[in-house]
């Protein structure tokens, strides 16, 4: 089998805009699923509503495209009713952190054996570019036309504090590292949370100084700083510029988990 076999060929090309990072993260996730050797019939992809949540529709396993923000609650039901199934949840920043915030922290607290891939494009893409809980301060969107005045959510910090077993962040530029992080998440029992920043050229990029698809990718490349390096800088008392993206593995631990395959 190859990654191509995990795709619903009859549904491609997908609905994502040209240059959207979601497709890249689908590649990385399928590559990780392929590497861990899961069988198609034992794997279920679950999602909520939004651009990111269209992903399971293109994957040839059983897939559940649910209501806005509730993907984790649906996935909890599936996993507990049949712990033999391997479950990956695709979700977006609005889906997970805004409307689904409560389900997110409780899924982390339960430490239920799911792998959650959050495609964070920092905007509500499907509805046309409204501000989301992860839109950075000053970020322009249709509902923050003078720049977002609210601080953004640190989703990885939230997941760590709420009790997830594995937490990592990468971007859609770092395909190798992201794939490895997702693979580690799949292997790790308990709640695994992998946040991937993705470019949204249509609704975020063009309003925020990234005229071309490549501009935002270049930004991810140049503004990423490893968690370990950031820690060393803090030790030395150096300032980490606020626009830098902390990437890498935030936590890997073995708290008691729910719904682990017996």
């Amino acid at each position: 089998m190859s990654e191509e076999d995990w795709l619903r060929q009859d549904r491609l090309p997908h609905i994502f805009c040209a240059g959207c990072g979601n497709g890249t993260v689908i590649n990385c996730t399928l590559s990780a699923v392929e590497q861990i050797g899961w069988k198609r019939q034992e794997t279920v992809f679950v999602s909520g509503i939004g651009c990111s949540s269209r992903a399971p529709g293109y994957i040839s396993t059983d897939s559940l495209h649910t209501t806005h923000g509730r993907a984790l609650a649906f996935a909890t039901g599936i996993k507990l009713a049949n712990p033999q199934l391997n479950i990956v949840v695709f979700t977006g920043d609005g889906d997970l952190a805004a409307i689904g915030g409560n389900h997110f922290i409780h899924a982390c607290r339960r430490n239920i054996d799911l792998t959650v891939v959050c495609l964070n494009n920092m905007i509500y893409g499907m509805t046309g570019g409204q501000g989301s809980p992860t839109t950075p301060m000053g970020g322009l969107s249709t509902t923050t036309p003078y720049g977002s005045g609210e601080p953004a959510f640190d989703l990885c910090g939230l997941a760590t504090a709420a009790g997830a077993n594995y937490v990592a962040r990468w971007t859609s530029y770092h395909v190798r590292e992201l794939t490895r992080a997702i693979l580690t998440g799949l292997e790790n029992p308990g709640f695994s949370f992998i946040e991937s920043l993705v470019q949204c050229p249509t609704n975020y990029g063009r309003r925020n100084r990234f005229k071309q698809v490549a501009d935002q990718i270049e930004y991810f490349k140049s503004h990423t700083i490893l968690v370990e390096k950031a820690a060393r800088m803090r030790e030395k008392g150096e300032m980490i510029p606020p626009e830098m993206i902390l990437a890498g593995e935030f936590v890997r631990r073995n708290r008691p988990a729910l719904g682990v395959r017996p």
């Binding site: 649910t66 509730r70 507990l80 049949n82 409560n102």
Partner: peptide, 17 residues
């Protein structure tokens, strides 16, 4: 579950198994 929204969601998820 954490609320009634999640309760019915989990029920629907379980039913699909």
């Amino acid at each position: 579950m954490e609320d009634e929204i999640a309760s019915i969601a989990a029920v629907i998820g379980a039913s699909w198994t």
